[in-house]
């Protein structure tokens, strides 16, 4: 009997946000072969046009499929997920549920209908920039929580993977709200069968920068 192959999972995001998905996948499955594509050249996706994003993400999907033989691809970006119409079963994108209120980027807001959303222009970019500066991050999240009056809500969903990276800070400033990570929904239903506990992660970026790769690597949880 031949052994089952270790699946290759591609993760696409504009920057560091998708790391939250990578960490969640790593926690759920013991091993795996991950290709993380940070499109840092086009960071942030939140203020790009829908046409541009559709084209770009489709190109990246093809690139990962042909060059890295991916078995699954996660569109680890709520903005990109909201503009894409996909037919391929092996490409998994973020979903939105009309029962919840979402904190999202402006482009995601434009594409969502019948969903309660709070849009923020700059937060994703600020998190990307100050991810390792705890003091600054505290100030930023506190400001945005007050701006959008998030702490007055009973429940809201973090509709951008960048926000998920600072889940703990949202929790800190909204102690009485139920905060949900949008990636929890898709990961709950996602399963793969393989027999290995080896993990490999390859980081790719569209704008070459050694320090950026280091930044991505240091966000990966053991």
């Amino acid at each position: 009997m031949l052994k089952k192959l270790r699946p290759t999972i591609g993760i696409i995001d504009s920057g560091i946000g998708g790391i939250s998905i990578l960490n969640a996948l790593k926690a759920k499955f013991k091993g795996g072969n991950y290709i993380y594509f940070a499109d840092n050249l086009n960071m942030p996706y939140g203020n790009k046009s829908a046409k541009f994003l559709k084209n770009r993400v489709n190109n990246l999907i093809n690139y990962l499929k042909t060059n890295y033989l991916t078995d699954y691809i996660f569109i680890a970006c709520n903005t990109a997920s909201s503009v894409l119409k996909l037919a391929d079963a092996d490409v998994i994108k973020m979903q939105f549920d009309t029962n919840y209120t979402y904190l999202v980027t402006p482009l995601t807001k434009q594409t969502l209908q019948n969903i309660n959303v709070v849009a923020d222009k700059t937060l994703a970019k600020l998190i990307e920039k100050h991810i390792f500066n705890t003091k600054a991050l505290n100030r930023i999240i506190k400001y945005h929580v007050n701006l959008h009056k998030l702490n007055a809500m009973d429940c809201f969903v973090l509709g951008c993977t960048h926000y998920e990276l600072v889940y703990d800070l949202f929790k800190k400033y909204c102690p009485n709200s139920k905060i949900i990570k949008n990636s929890d929904f898709i990961l709950k239903d996602f399963n793969m069968n393989f027999e290995t506990n080896e993990t490999s992660i390859l980081f790719l970026q569209s704008k070459s920068s050694k320090s950026y790769i280091q930044k991505l690597k240091s966000l990966v949880e053991d």
């Binding site: 192959l5 290759t8 033989l69 290995t196 490999s200």
Partner: peptide
């Protein structure tokens, strides 16, 4: 020409 890249991708799958 891209045999090495494909080979690496396949090796990562455990081949």
């Amino acid at each position: 020409y891209n045999a090495n890249e494909i080979k690496l991708a396949l090796q990562n799958k455990g081949i």
